[in-house]
């Protein structure tokens, strides 16, 4: 009897509670304080970005005025025009786009195939190979820069897109995440496809990929962000400014523009903007993808 009333009350509560998260009485002082605090923290986190945009819109002399001014007295886009006129930033954009797209596509293809191989097929030595892959997760790419650069010199890949891209495609952790996910996909779908005569390659494309779209999305998003933002490896393997990516090219901006802060900030804003826009548009997918990828453990 007691359990019965409890469960009926619980279902009523769930019907009336809105959204997720703790159920709390509405409009308490604590609730208002938490909301205000969360907004203040958000503003604090946005201040550096706003300050950069603000500076980039000031005429150069105004950037070094003391006391500092918050809003540009005479807003101008001269800094942006100057940065774009110099041309190299557009080239770096192109390079970053090519590199990030190649890294993301290749990582997805190669890791999906490998994850399927480890999850669904048996071949002699599979366990040993998977063990080596797990050990590979522990190897930080940062400690490989010196021998990897030597190797790239030997292969003639210094200052080439492939030289920047190929080492970044090796992401054992992505294979691991995808394999774990594939392990959880019921074999019934696959068996049904097999009865219909599908090859295993076909099964990967028509069964596994559609079923794991959210995880693949998360892998794609984080691979893309990582590749677009990667600094150390492209910095090591490119010496020709025409082959540099955005992060590497911008590293030299401070010196080449001298003390023109509006221009420096304009190039920083341009460099940070693309992924910021992408994130603003795809926030839901990014947030959900992290959960679906099971990265949370």
């Amino acid at each position: 009897m007691a359990t019965l009333t409890l469960s009926s009350r619980a279902s009523r509560a769930s019907r009336f509670s809105r959204g997720s998260g703790p159920v709390q009485p509405r409009f308490t002082f604590a609730k208002v304080a938490i909301t205000v605090g969360s907004v203040l923290l958000a503003l604090l986190w946005l201040v550096p970005l706003l300050w950069a945009i603000d500076t980039s819109l000031k005429p150069e002399p105004e950037t070094t005025q003391t006391p500092i001014t918050w809003l540009p007295g005479a807003p101008t886009i001269d800094a942006y025009r100057n940065v774009l006129d110099q041309g190299s930033i557009l080239r770096w954009f192109l390079n970053s786009t090519i590199v990030a797209c190649l890294v993301t596509t290749l990582t997805l293809v190669v890791s999906t195939l490998a994850a399927y191989g480890f999850s669904r097929t048996t071949f002699p030595g599979r366990r040993v190979l998977f063990g080596i892959l797990i050990a590979g997760i522990l190897v930080p790419p940062q400690v490989l820069i010196v021998p990897l650069f030597q190797e790239m010199t030997g292969l003639g890949l210094v200052d080439t897109y492939w030289g920047i891209v190929l080492p970044q495609v090796v992401a054992p952790v992505m294979v691991f995440v995808l394999k774990k996910f594939f392990d959880g996909v019921s074999r019934d779908y696959e068996d049904a496809a097999r009865v219909d005569g599908a090859t295993r390659l076909r099964i990967v494309w028509s069964v596994m990929v559609p079923m794991s779209r959210p995880v693949l999305g998360a892998v794609a998003i984080f691979t893309f962000i990582g590749a677009w933002n990667n600094f150390l490896w492209p910095f090591i393997v490119t010496t020709d400014p025409a082959m540099m990516t955005i992060p590497v090219g911008l590293a030299n901006v401070q010196g080449s523009y001298g003390l023109r802060y509006a221009q420096i900030m304009a190039s920083a804003v341009l460099g940070g903007l693309p992924l910021l826009v992408v994130f603003a548009l795809f926030q839901r997918q990014v947030v959900r993808g992290v959960g679906d990828a099971g990265i949370k453990g």
Binding site: S38, V39, L41, A42, L43, W45, L46, V47, P48, L49, W51, A52, T55, T63, T64, Q65, T66, I68, I225, W228, N229, F231, I246, P247, V248, L250, A251, V253, Q254, Y261, I264, M265, S267, A268, G271, G272, L275, L276, V278, F279, A280, Q283, V286, V287
Partner: peptide, 30 residues
């Protein structure tokens, strides 16, 4: 809130450091 908290993560190290070197700038930094 999610946008504000996560936004910096999607920017390259170089952009972040250009902005923060400017913020820490003696004299007229923020």
């Amino acid at each position: 809130l999610r946008f504000s908290y996560f936004a910096p993560f999607v920017m390259p190290a170089t952009v972040v450091t250009l902005i923060w070197v400017w913020i820490y700038q003696p004299g007229f930094g923020l």
